[in-house]
Computed example of a mutant assay.
Amino acid sequence: MNLYTVREASELYFNKNISVSHIYNLIRSKSLNCIYIGHKILIPEEALENYCKANFNIKQENL
């Protein structure tokens, strides 16, 4: 299981197409699941994938 910080999720997973502040808003509104360890927020890669599948029109093609 890969875990991302909010900044890593913005930069690495979303390629800076979604801002850090928007990711915080998604977490605050319970639209994106995360793990709290003290004050640190970690986002599982599976949560990011589920968010994308539920909110973006992504077509998967069989290769």
Rank of each mutant, 00 (worst) to 15 (best):
S10G: 05
N62R: 12
I23W: 05
F56K: 14
K30Q: 15
E46M: 05
K30L: 10
L26Y: 02
S31A: 09
N33A: 10
N57P: 10
P44M: 07
I23Y: 04
L48G: 02
L12S: 07
I58V: 15
E45W: 00
I27C: 08
E11R: 12
T5D: 13
H39Y: 07
I43A: 01
K16Y: 03
F14G: 01
I35C: 08
I23K: 09
A54T: 00
L63K: 10
I41A: 07
S19W: 01
C34Y: 08
Y4K: 13
I43D: 03
E61G: 13
E8I: 00
F56Q: 14
E11I: 02
T5F: 10
Q60R: 13
L63E: 08
I23C: 09
S29C: 08
I18H: 02
Y13E: 06
L42R: 03
N62D: 14
Y24R: 12
G38F: 07
S29T: 04
E61I: 02
H22E: 10
K53H: 12
Y4W: 11
L63H: 04
Y51G: 12
N62M: 10
K16T: 01
A9Q: 01
A9N: 01
L48E: 01
E61M: 13
F14P: 06
L3H: 04
N2G: 02
A47T: 06
C34P: 07
C34K: 08
N2L: 12
S29L: 09
I43G: 01
K53S: 13
I35T: 10
N15P: 08
S21G: 03
L3C: 05
Y24V: 02
N50E: 13
K30M: 12
N17K: 09
N50W: 01
S21Y: 04
C34L: 06
K53I: 02
S31R: 11
V6K: 10
E61N: 14
I18R: 05
F56M: 15
N25D: 13
L42Q: 04
C52D: 08
E46R: 04
I18G: 02
K40T: 09
I37P: 11
K40Y: 07
P44C: 06
K16E: 05
H39A: 10
T5Q: 14
R7T: 00
C52A: 14
A54V: 00
P44F: 03
I23V: 04
K16H: 07
L63F: 05
H22C: 06
L32C: 09
I35S: 05
A9I: 00
F56V: 03
L48D: 01
V20W: 04
K59Y: 11
I43P: 04
N62A: 06
E61H: 12
K30C: 10
S10C: 09
F14V: 00
E49S: 12
L26Q: 05
N33T: 03
Q60T: 14
K53W: 06
N15G: 04
H22D: 04
L12Q: 12
S21F: 04
Y36G: 05
E45A: 08
I35V: 15
I23P: 11
L26E: 04
R28S: 12
